[in-house]
Write a protein that binds this DNA or RNA. Structure first.
Lengths: 133, 133
DNA sequence: ATTAAATGTTAGGAAATCTTACATGAAATT
DNA sequence: AATTTCATGTAAGATTTCCTAACATTTAAT
């Protein structure tokens, strides 16, 4: 688990890139941070640096905004979904440890088909995974 | 082919991020561009923006430099390896189209094990794929 | 009609990056 | 041994991008 998470939480992108990737304005992104929906890292010089996780989250936020949900609602939803996916991830891990070879083959195929995002929250359309691999 | 390539060639990273990811100095990175080993995109305001492919390439360059190869040599090597991987990619594509289900299962499992980078140039140690997925 | 929430816009300042030029150390060449 | 070349460091001055803070605007709820 830690490997994948470390990479996806690595601060890489300046706000300009994130604007393009998410089609959100700088104002919106900063506003969402102000309301603690995201907490991007900072450079030494105080510039925001966003991770893949941050961008994923922003795309989710955008979706929820489109559905008319306000900051408070989104905050709660993101919290719940985070817990959910943690739980599910734990289950998945456990399941994997107990699989036979045959079952593993099937699982791997499925994971590949779903672009390795099987166990993440998924009601949003525009997923960042489309940008990589 | 185009899908994966479009994503990996998308300009996303400022030079500061690339410096950290590659442990190269700005001077080095610009020097390599000057010698046409890479050609990162530019923002409207003329700032360099690097893609995953660019970063991969820089890691390769770093390796080759460590092996004592000079700019001219590296340029040629990168050219050859690019052609090579293009050819191999074509072969891989063709092979995939001709596979049976059973063979496909095995292939998919192997690809997964190799983190989907099977057919790329591979004599360098520090591959960018460790940062993603 | 008023208020609140989300976003736009502007201003002034600071950080990151740009190009260009010169400096330096190590290798190669003469 | 002296000179040249290659790869990199460093510095200066200009430009771009991003920062915060404040005020403006729009839309929806009261």
């Amino acid at each position: 688990m830690s490997g994948k998470e470390i990479r996806r939480s690595m601060p890489l992108f300046p706000i300009g890139t994130v604007m393009q990737l998410t089609e959100l304005s700088a104002r919106q992104i900063r506003y969402y941070e102000e309301h603690q929906l995201i907490s991007p890292a900072r450079t030494e010089g105080n510039r925001r640096l966003f991770s893949l996780n941050d961008i994923d989250r922003l795309l989710e936020i955008k979706d929820l905004i489109d559905q008319g949900i306000n900051m408070a609602g989104i905050k709660q939803l993101l919290l719940v979904k985070e817990q959910q996916s943690n739980i599910q991830e734990a289950h998945t891990e456990k399941a994997k440890r107990e699989l036979t070879d045959e079952q593993l083959r099937t699982l791997l195929r499925n994971e590949l088909m779903h672009l390795g995002r099987m166990n993440r929250s998924s009601l949003r359309q525009g997923d960042l995974s489309r940008f990589f691999h």
